[in-house]
Write a protein that binds this DNA or RNA. Sequence first.
DNA 1: TCAACAATACCGCATTTGTATGATTTTAAC
DNA 2: GTTAAAATCATACAAATGCGGTATTGTTGA
Lengths: 211, 211
Amino acid sequence: MKTAITVAIVEDKEPIRQSLAILVDGAEGFSCQATFENAESALDYLPSHCVDVVLMDIDLPGMNGIDCVRQLKALCPQTQFMMCTMYDEDETVFDALKAGANSYILKRSPPHKLLEAITELHEGGAPMSSTIARKIAGSFYISPAAPNELDILTPREREILDRLSKGHSHKEVANELFVSPTTVRKHIFNIYQKLQVHSKIEAVNKYLGRQ
Amino acid sequence: MKTAITVAIVEDKEPIRQSLAILVDGAEGFSCQATFENAESALDYLPSHCVDVVLMDIDLPGMNGIDCVRQLKALCPQTQFMMCTMYDEDETVFDALKAGANSYILKRSPPHKLLEAITELHEGGAPMSSTIARKIAGSFYISPAAPNELDILTPREREILDRLSKGHSHKEVANELFVSPTTVRKHIFNIYQKLQVHSKIEAVNKYLGRQ
DNA sequence: TCAACAATACCGCATTTGTATGATTTTAAC
DNA sequence: GTTAAAATCATACAAATGCGGTATTGTTGA
């Protein structure tokens, strides 16, 4: 028989913490090693007792679950973190992923799904509740309908803007493209007109899709 | 009984196309409406005969599956697209998501997983093969080790850099912070020294973690 | 064929920026 | 209570940049 997947639970609400612990410990192949009612105690204990999977609530008293993951991630690199929460706002989801969460499951998921997800996570997957997964996949989508401001730039202008975005000066770009610096300046001027900006930084921000 | 999920398949290799069609059509609750051996014929037929789910291979003769999804997405907004391919390179995956793919399944997945995935996709999820999901989730992760370069900046310097990153000039920043422009320039110069750069763009790139 | 556009190039001017040196005042740490 | 670091300001110069013209050439679509 395979070694059980070791699990820790961070959840402030007593009844939920208890039922999660019972669920995990009661299932074959899983072992709940520890439970915590706040982020601080988890940060205290887990680094010296790393587990395979941590189920992390987000809304905790004191430090929130996302910041807790960010810190634990550095201390327990081999541990997988599953956010287990009721929040499904965009910002929360993406902040959790940025902090290092590998999985994001909504609390309303049925128990057997949770166990499945822990297994999948431990086997190298990144199980997400379906609405979360859709949110994440959708965040990459670039709508062709959205008339990209950059479309009005000519290929040459885009090329120059790209090099500017890498921090190259007018003169450097001119050398790279084998044209005169004045030509580059003219192109840049035209770019400013088209993008309605007045400096390299503003142009680069638009180019790289910020602000 | 619920209406069957209507499916179309775009796959150039005859045997794979056939077995996918048989798999889908043979399962209860699924109905394979059409199969195509290239992107062009799919683009020809599907817009006027939209289906619930399209299984799309990537490596096709002529137009590839990603570009095909990009175009179909605009014409069949309610259709869900599942990339079904052997590629798992980063660039391919993210390009597919940018094009509008809602799901990305590797061909090596077992048949029952594929049917499950189609169902999940149709119900609003975004099923991904586990290695793919991990890749996607990981793409958000911001390593806490990276920003240590910025740690050497003082709060004031960070404040100024932040405003520079928004495209403000020296003078503007000076007005915003109620200090002399020369002070701002001094700070900026110190920032350059610390970050080992020589222009605003380079500094802002480091600040925003894009280089 | 002609107009529009893209890419190339030049000149010139005012402003911004990068670099250097030096100094004063707050603030924080020991 | 001294010291170190941070924040402030000044002056100065060279280089880079932003803005305004004008002009030539090649391509392209109406």
